[in-house]
Design a protein around this nucleic acid. Structure first.
Lengths: 187, 187
DNA sequence: AATAGCATGTAAAGTGTTACATGATTTC
DNA sequence: GAAATCATGTAACACTTTACATGCTATT
């Protein structure tokens, strides 16, 4: 079987923690690789055909039946192999806001400043949501342990990173804002 | 004409600074919205048909002829309008490294630690490259001014952000590494 | 009565990457 | 002599998003 794409690896990564349905994976993956269920369901099928995951059909009453997927030994081996590989120095970082920032000179100062204020609000909202999400996940899966030996360690590192990313951008916005103000007061 | 996609807006954003060829745009856009020339050339054609940019054909000897694109008033207006719009709370943040981090528990401690050390090296290399790129751009287009009134202001803010993003991740890696070490020494 | 959650799937459209194609000049 | 730079373009493939499709239960 040829190399897996990022989403496949993300699915395997998530399944190292515990078996999940496609529905759950769609939601859990929001944390580090969001994808729609329309992409996830067919991929799970392919991974299953490739022997990297298996599923158990759980019949339910009142709710639709579901397929609970687990990672196989072959899947774990494949994932480990991919983790070891060095990525080809990719760097996406596609943030629409940066497009706006680059062209900020075409906007009126007051509009520009408002844009940054709105961004700050959005970041704060995102941080709040993330922290709520983390709290929820901690309740469901137990507070991640800071010990490398634990299977929870990766989640702990990820949380730290996600929170830091948002806080760093907030600091940048706060650093930028005075530059707008001073220019506006000259007017 | 219906709403433009992100890449179209990125092209317009870049053209607010100065007229460019598709070839130049491909390189300049690396800074905040990388795309291949195979995507950029056709899009420039569409923007031209839509009246948002115009081009002047420059015939050269020794080098291939080129099309120098400029943003039109209609293009600037369209860009301003898009900048004002509030984005639908998107948040991509698709970083393959985070997939690896999440599943770090399946790796041997020593492999895990090496992964982070390699990441630190890669980040340092990226920072070095970015700073060289910034220096080069500053030489070509003049050091960006910290004054909002200047057309260079957006570039200044962007540079700050890009450098900060990398430094923040380096700090996170450095914060994480001791957690690996302590676990390894117990062994 | 309407919305949200559970749960899976397919089809179509849009976006992005890799490969194919050309050809002169300059640098190593 | 090989590789890189300049400069544009198309075709094929891979990935992502949006829309279509179904249907029961619990909440507002």
């Amino acid at each position: 079987m040829h190399a897996l794409n990022s989403l496949s690896n993300a699915l395997l990564s998530m399944l190292t923690r515990k078996p999940c349905t496609g529905y759950e994976l769609t939601k859990l993956l929001q944390l580090f690789w969001q994808a729609q269920h329309s992409q996830i369901y067919p991929l799970l099928g392919k991974l299953e055909q490739g022997g990297l995951v298996t599923f158990e059909l759980i019949c339910q009453t009142g709710k639709p039946d579901k397929k609970v997927y687990s990672i196989t030994d072959a899947g774990t081996a494949k994932l480990q192999q991919w983790i070891r590989e060095q990525p080809p120095m990719e760097y996406q970082e596609r943030d629409e806001f940066l497009i706006k920032v680059y062209a900020i000179g075409v906007m009126e100062p007051e509009t520009a400043r408002r844009l940054f204020l709105e961004r700050r609000d959005a970041l704060l909202a995102r941080l709040t949501r993330l922290e709520a999400q983390i709290k929820l996940m901690d309740e469901e899966e137990g507070i991640p342990v800071t010990d490398l030996a634990s299977r929870q360690f990766g989640r702990y590192l990820l949380y730290q990173r996600k929170v830091r990313i948002i806080k760093e951008e907030m600091e940048w916005v706060d650093w930028s804002l005075p530059l707008f103000k001073s220019s506006v007061t000259i007017d």
